[in-house]
Amino acid sequence: MINFQYLRASSPKSAIDGVRTDLSAQFIAGGTNLIDLMKRGITAPPKLVDINNLPLRDIADEGKTIRIGALALNSTVADHSLILKKLPLLAQALNAGASAQIRNMATVGGNMMQRTRCPYFYDPSLPCNKRAPGSGCGAVAGINRMHAIFGLEPVPDQHVCIAVHPSDMCVALAALDATVEVWGPGGNRTIPFTGFHRLPGSNPQKDNTLQHGELITALRLPDNALATHSHYLKIRDRASYAFALISVAAALDLKGKTIQQARLAMGGVAHKPWRLTEAEQVLIGKPATEATFREAAQVAMRGARAFEHNTYKLKLAPAAIVEALTRAAG
C-alpha cells in the first residue's frame, strides 16, 4: 500500500472537483471493497476523496418513484419500511449479500462500484486482462467454476474476460428498472441501471459506463405492482457470506393466475447483472405455471456458453429461474 492523500468532501461539487483533476483519484464511501483492493496492491490511488459526509443518505417516496441516496447503507435500505413494503425484492437481495458487518458499512453506490471477485483479478502474479490489460485471462483455461456464461463476445485473447459482477443488490436493481442519478464535471445525467454496468468487450478493465469524476448521487426505482410476487433466490456454497454461483431476481404482477408483467434478472452469470427481457416477454399473458416458467428459462438460456468448471451453470441456471419464479408466484 502506498501513502496516499485523503480528503473529506463537504459537498458533491467539492468531491467531484477533488477527483476530476487527478485521473488516479477515487471516491471512497464504505470502503468495503476499495480498501481490500488497495491492501492487495490491485489498485493504488494516490488520492482518496471521502464522500461519507455528503447529504446523500435519504430514502424517500416521491410518489411514482422511490429515491435512494447513494450513501444509504445496504443495511439501512434492507430494513427500511418503504423498501420492505414496495420493493421487497431489493431488500431480499441486499440481505443475501456479504455479511451483516459489511452491509453496515457498504453504501448502495459503493455496492454498484464493487469489482469482480475473480481470483485471477486479485492476484497480481497471475494474468488478468481486467487488472493488467493484455496479460491474458487466467480464468478462461483455469479454475472458472464461478465464472460467466453470458455476454461473452468473441474477442482476441488480450481482451478476454469471463469474470462476473459480484453484487446481489444490482441483480434486483436491474430487474426493477432502476435508474442511476449521476453528477459530474460535465453536468448531471441519468443512466438506466441496465446500461450502468457493461460487458467486457475490448475493454474488460472497465466495469461500468461512468466517466472519471462522475459521482453516483442516487437511485430511482419506479413504483410497481410487483411487490406481492417477488423472490430473490441465491445459490451459493455456504449459507452466508459467499458469492452467488447463480442468483435470480424474479418479480411478477399476477391477475388471478395470469402474468401481467414480469421482471427477471440473474447474477453470477455475466460481467454485469443479467436482465432477461426476452424471457420476461415469454411470461407475459401466460398462466403462472411450471410449464410457462420452463419455457421462459429455456429462452433465458439462449446464447449461454460454459467453460471447464462451470458447465453446471447451464443446468443450474434454468432450474434456478424456474424455482425463483415458482417462489415469486407462490
Partner: peptide, 28 residues
C-alpha cells in the same frame, strides 16, 4: 465446502483468502 484450489498451470492457490476458501459460518 473446504477445498484449497490450486491452478496447476501456475502451481498457485487461487482461493487463498477467507472469502474464497469457504469455512462454515454460523448460518451453516
Amino acid at each position: 465446502m473446504e477445498e484449497g484450489q490450486i491452478d496447476h498451470r501456475f502451481g498457485r492457490y487461487v482461493n487463498k483468502d477467507l472469502a474464497d476458501y469457504h469455512l462454515p459460518v454460523f448460518a451453516d
